[in-house]
Each structure stands twice: as structure tokens, then as C-alpha cells.
Computed example of a mutant assay.
Amino acid sequence: MKDRVMVVDDEPITRLDIKEMLEERGYNLVGEAKNGEEAIEKAKHLAPNLIIMDIKMPILDGVKASSIIKKQSDCAILLLTAYSDQELTIKAKKAGVTGYLVKPVKERELIPAVEIALSQRKKELELFRKIALLEEKIEHRKKIEKAKGILMKVEGYSEEEAYRKLQKKSMETHVSMVKIAEQVIGKVNK
């Protein structure tokens, strides 16, 4: 099964056309909405990977809805517009939109845009995952450095000796160095 997609447009015929094009390609259409406000609510519950959304809609337009959805979700958003201008491009970029298509939407334009948007989303998620791992490693390193500093101050070890002490304790107890560092820090903070 392909990615989860939601279609948002105030025109039922446009929603139906887009749904049919996507379903023919095997996409999982998880929902649809007729305005930006409804899109925000449904995006929370349906968790689509991609939202294809019109810009000009009643109640809340697609750009404002996109901005709110992007703060709550990691989905990609493709905007649909009847016009293409510089101001729209700037607003769309600020809202975190992945791309946009000019109406009327044709399958030969829609499917590549959908594929690219979903590919960009996957790359973005992978970058966020890598950033989180790096941040975790930095926090671990800070704890190890702090524990080394404590051992140097309290026990009079050199920096290398303090590191070796942490490393040896980790190997002997089969506990990660960061856990050993946390134990050393915890003893000082008591």
C-alpha cells in the first residue's frame, strides 16, 4: 500500500478527480476536507503523509491551514492554485509547503509532484532522525566529560586516567559509559 493522502478542496468535483487519479496509482486516500479548518482537524486524526490542498477556500485558506498543520505534523503539503505568482510562492515557503500545482490538475503533473513531495518528506524525516541521534550523542558526551571532570577534581586523575576509569568500569559492569557517567555525577549531586 502506498502513502496515506488527504485531499482538501471546496469543489467536490476537484476532490473526486484528484482522488480517482491517486487511487488508480494505488495511493491510500485516508480522507478529504472542504476547507482549511476541516483539514486541520482531519489531519490530526488521519495522520496523512501528504495533503493536497486548494489555496482559495472558505473559512480558512490553504496557506494558513498549511502553516498550522505543519506545526502539528510531519506531512508533506502540495497546494493547488488557479494562479501562480511570486507572493504566493513566498507565503507557501513560509508555511512549510512542499510544492504547488496550478489548476486544472492533470495526472501527468499530479503524480510526479506527489512522488517528489513524498520523497522530500522521507528525506526530511531521515534528517530529523539523524539530528535527534546527534543531539543524543552530544548529551552523552557532555555527561561523560562532566564525569571525567569530577573524577579529575575529586580523585586527582589526569583527563586520560579519568576517561580510562570510566571506560574500565563500563567494561567490567557491562553498562554503557554514559550510565557510569550518570552514576558518578549522581554521587556528587547527593
Rank of each mutant, 00 (worst) to 15 (best):
L151I: 00
P12H: 05
V184Y: 03
D9P: 11
D85K: 07
M6L: 15
I90G: 09
N35R: 12
D17A: 10
S73T: 06
S84D: 11
S67T: 13
R129S: 04
H174Y: 14
S67P: 14
S73V: 01
I59D: 08
K70C: 01
D17Q: 13
V184F: 02
E11V: 01
S158L: 09
E126W: 05
K168R: 15
V114F: 09
V7W: 03
D3A: 12
E20T: 13
I185T: 00
V178H: 09
E139D: 14
M53V: 04
K70V: 00
K94N: 15
R108K: 13
K148A: 03
Q183T: 11
A65M: 04
V175D: 14
K123D: 05
M21C: 06
E182P: 01
I180E: 14
P12W: 04
R121P: 05
A181I: 04
V102K: 12
K71H: 06
A117V: 07
Q86S: 14
A65R: 01
L127E: 15
E115D: 15
K93A: 15
P12R: 04
D74Q: 11
E115I: 10
L46M: 11
A82Q: 12
R141H: 11
D85I: 02
P12F: 04
A43E: 02
E41T: 08
V184S: 04
I144H: 04
A39V: 00
R25M: 05
K146R: 13
K179D: 11
Y163S: 08
S73D: 03
S84R: 08
L151R: 00
E136T: 01
I116L: 15
K122M: 05
L127F: 10
E24A: 08
